[in-house]
Each structure stands twice: as C-alpha cells, then as structure tokens.
Design a protein around this nucleic acid. Structure first.
Length: 496
RNA sequence: CGCGGGGUGGAGCACCUGUGGUAGCUCGUCGGGCUCAUAACCCGAAGGUCGUUAGUUCAAAUCUAACCCCCGCAACCA
C-alpha cells in the first residue's frame, strides 16, 4: 500500500513581486514532492497565496487600485512563477477563496465552542500607520520601529486564542519529537525560545475594514491574517481530509518558525485535529556578497534574472546543490554558470555523449543490460539518496549522485572501450554497463533534474517516468538515439 | 545587552550537527595520461598549525569553556 506524502510551501504574501526566496522554497518543495512520487508514494503538493491583512489594502491604495483587483493581479505573478519554475504542485490555494473562508470559519467556530477563543481587550503600544501593535521588546523606546513615530497606548476589543493553555504541551511535544522541527538548529532555537518567553494568549482578530475573513457571528471583526493563513494547509484538503491530513512536511523559512512550530500545532490541538509530522526550515538565499538580499544594498538577484536566461534545471541544480539545506547560501550567478558548465555539462552531459556515441558506433542502437553483469549498485545508491532525502539533505543526495557520475567517467577511462575490438564480449559488457550507469543515474536524478532526466531517458529509449524498482530489474533494454548536447556551455561575463 | 548562524589551502564551500582516529570537494595554478566525448574525461603535484587561547582524551576541525571577528534577528523581505 502506497504511503501518502502531503507537502506544503508557506503561502506567499503578494504585496510585492515574487523574489528569490519564493523561488527557492518552491523548488525545494518540488524536489521533495517529486522524490516521494518517484519512490511510489501518493503525493499532494500545495502552494498558494496569503491574501488577507491590512498591508495588502494599503499596498493597493498606494497602487491606486481596488484591493481585489490589485490582489488578483499580484497573485497572477505568483501563479506565473510556479508555472515558470515547472512546479509539480497539485493545488494552489488563495486565502480569499470560498473554500478557505469556510474552513477558517469552521475552525474558528470549533475553537469557540470549546471555549478556546474568548472576547477580551487588547492593550498595547499601537502604531496608527502600521495598524499594528508592538511589544515592549520591539519598541523599547516607545517609537514605531517602522515609522519612528511615537506609539499610542491603545485599548482595543478583540478575540483571543488561549495559546497559554498549551505552553507546556507544545514544549513537551517539540522536545520529544526531534524531527518535528528540522533541522536541529531550528529545533533547539525554538525550544529555547519557548522556555525563555512566556507564552501568552494570541490576539486573533482585527477590526473589520471590509477586507479579510469575518469572525463568525461578529461582523465587526475579521480574523487576524496569521490565524487564517495557517489554516490554508487544512482548508486545501478538507474535502479529502481522511486521505491527506495531516501534512507530512511544511516547508518554511526561518522567520516564520514560531507560527508553524508553536501557534499552528496549538491551534490544531485545540481543534482536535492531527498535527503535521514535520516543519522543515530551509535557509536563506543571500546576495552575492553573502549578506541578506536587500534593495538598499542592491545585492539581490531576481528570479527572473535567471528564468529564461539559464536552463531551468541548472537553476534548480544550483539552488539545491550549492546551498546546503537548512543553511544560508550566497546566490552568485557566476557560480551558477560555473556549475552548469562543469558539473552539468562536462561531468554529466558529456558522459552521456561519449557513451551513447561510442555505443552507436560500435554496436548499433539496441543494447541490453543484464543484472548479473552490472558493475554499479544502484539499489544501494537509491538507499543512500533515500537516507539523505529523509534527513532533508538534498544537497547530499546530489553529492552522492555526482560521485556516481564521476565513477562512471573514471570507469570509462580505465576500461577504454574505444580501444576494444568491435563485437567483442568485453566491449559489449563495458558499454552496456556504462549505459546502465547513465540510465540509473538519470532515473535517480528525476526529482532534481526533471527535464534533463527526461531527455536522457528518451535518448536511451526508455519511458519518461520510472520508479526505483527498475534499478533492480533483471534486464533493461536500450534503444539509443543520437544524443544532442544536454547542457550547451554558457558564455557569461560579469556585469553583462 | 540578548537570541541564532558563521570563521577550514588563492577563491567558494563540505565534514563538525550520523560514529573524535592520516583534512575533503569544486574552481584556479603546475605537470602527466587518454583521444570515445560538449577543447571533454582520468591521474599526479604545489598550497591549510581547520578564528584565538585553555581544557577533556591515547587521539579534537569534530567534545567543553572563555575570548576575538563577521552576518541575521528594524525596514523591501522566505
């Protein structure tokens, strides 16, 4: 029976255009979605947009457009990004959709019925321009960190979620489930924070300015954006809840760990819903100077500087390989080009050329690889990749894959099949081994380099999508086609 | 101040976080091999006291402590 794997990205806040971080998170998630699909699991892969909150209303005002029109337009950009990245997502959710509204309201009512939400008063330092409260910690001097203007002491009516009731429970849950927040650094950081901060009840409503999801039974309030945003993971699969819930992995960035590792599980617990298995925190794509990408520093790289300029698989490969999962990494276009030219073109692409061309010359189109002749242990390599992927170390999976590619190149140099006599057994066995080696590598590379793998399999005369079981098949036959360069070299000059 | 991440041959990074045991990868430099292939592939060499200091240990880049430096935690922003 196939296992199920439900993976999500964070939903994006579309007040600006998609940036590198969005692309990174989506590509990582896509890689895992494809890997689990490859190993035979039933996969549901969700991404989408978070469209509530006053910040969007303000952004629309600044753009001089009605909020809804503005948001629709922005969301299209994110949809386009998904398409341009070749994402294999199963669903794209918008928090302005009816299905989400209904789900959020249902969850609210559930919590209210169980008295986990109550009506109260919020008192704090409030910035009028931000329409947000700041804690003593954020604004120690009583001034708005964003505007520098003095904050007002404001009392406001609103709804609260009894987060404090769950303080001990969530600490225990995180402590006892080492994989719940991953990687380890994120796990200990959040645990640390829970222990040092008093968990207080969470304000979950805002005054209704006709944008947002109305609080059931009280039109004067809408849900706080974060409250409803988290629920998207549930609302997207509510119609087939028994099939997909709970989520297997929420892939998120560092800045929203608290919401996903603390608030979200507590909400679910309070509503008697099952908890996600894992919150996977990825690192940040930094600017080429190794600092956080920012407009003021001008060190940012827009995803659209890459998409269309460089092959998609090279972009994917670079992000997945050059930035260790869980850590931060600088995005340097020159390095992307270098990895494309050396690792992809020279190591991998050239390997395909040299083997297939030689095979065509020496033995024609039809080749067969039998299990007893094989020099390479792909089932074992699969296990290795499986281990890396389970630990969410996709960069190591790629490293293992490349070790295999290097081994193949070395094998050819050692065997020197071009010196062997045409028609000899030695030649036949050497080349069928090499062909199987490429085949196995391409099969395993599907989650990482979908487009390229497809082309390789096609060159070998194999079906487009294959699972790990073919690696142990008794016999695989190839019907070779003349290969075209998989990775034409890229000429690229600094500051072009 | 506090929290978190990092400091490894000329450059960029693994390992450390999965088990402490001759320091590994890519690029660059130098020399060699091969000629099937996308001027590609393979081998070898030079180059590091793994931020500093102290400690634990038969043995530390890896564990412990202190310190120094860089980055993120306010804004565009995952």
């Amino acid at each position: 029976m196939p296992r199920k794997f439900y993976i999500t990205t964070a939903i994006d806040y579309p007040n600006g255009s998609p940036h590198m971080g969005h692309a990174y998170e989506k590509l990582i998630s896509d890689c895992y979605a494809r890997w689990y699909r490859f190993r035979g699991d039933q996969v549901h892969f969700l991404t989408g947009t978070d469209e509530n909150g006053q910040k969007l209303v303000r952004a629309a005002e600044e753009a001089g457009e009605p909020t809804k029109d503005f948001v629709d337009l922005q969301v299209d950009k994110f949809r386009k990004l998904c398409a341009d990245l070749g994402l294999s997502h199963s669903d794209f959710i918008r928090t302005t959709e009816a299905r989400h509204k209904e789900a959020a309201q249902e969850l609210w009512e559930r919590l209210q019925k169980k008295s986990k939400i109550y009506f109260g008063q919020y008192e704090g330092q409030y910035c009028l321009s931000c329409e947000a409260f700041y804690t003593e910690l954020q604004a120690a001097d009583g001034k708005c960190p964003a505007h520098g203007s003095p904050l007002e002491r404001v009392k406001e009516d609103g709804y609260f979620f009894k987060l404090s009731e769950y303080a001990e429970w969530i600490e225990a849950h995180i402590r006892d489930n080492e994989n719940f927040v991953w990687p380890k650094a994120a796990h200990s950081e959040i645990l640390n924070r829970i222990r040092s901060e008093k968990i207080r009840d969470l304000s979950v409503s805002r005054p209704n300015h006709s944008w947002g999801i109305p609080v059931p039974g009280d039109e004067k309030h809408v849900m706080y954006t974060w409250f409803d945003a988290l629920i998207n993971y549930w609302s997207a699969v509510r119609n087939s809840e028994e099939k997909w819930w709970p989520a297997s992995v929420h892939v998120i960035g560092k800045d929203i760990v608290w919401f996903h590792a603390v608030i979200w599980p507590c909400l679910l617990k309070a509503a008697d819903l099952e908890l996600p298995e894992q919150v996977f925190v990825h690192g940040m794509v930094l600017g080429q100077d190794g600092r956080k990408m920012s407009k003021t520093l001008g060190n940012g790289v827009d995803p659209y500087q890459i998409i269309g300029q460089f092959p998609l698989d090279s972009f994917r490969y670079y992000l997945l390989r050059a930035i260790p999962s869980g850590g931060d990494g600088a995005f340097v276009i020159k390095d992307l080009v270098m990895r494309h030219n050396t690792e992809l073109a020279n190591d991998f692409g050239n390997l395909l050329s040299r083997v297939v061309k030689l095979a065509l010359k020496k033995g024609g189109e039809t080749w067969e690889s039998r299990r007893e002749d094989r020099s390479f242990d792909f089932p074992k390599l699969f296990e290795k990749l499986e281990g890396s992927m389970t630990r969410r170390e996709h960069h190591r999976a790629l490293e293992s894959l490349w070790l295999q590619i290097n081994q193949l190149n070395l094998y050819l140099n050692d065997q020197a099949p071009w010196k062997m006599e045409a028609g000899s057994e030695a030649l036949k066995s050497c080349l069928s081994n090499a062909l199987f080696g490429i085949f196995g590598t391409a099969v395993l590379a599907q989650a990482f380099l979908p487009e390229v793998s497809r082309k390789i399999l096609q060159t070998l005369g194999q079906p487009e999508v294959l699972g790990p079981e073919v690696l142990a098949a008794d016999s695989v036959s190839f019907r070779l086609q003349s290969p075209e360069p998989l990775f034409p070299k890229i000429e690229w000059k600094e500051e072009s």
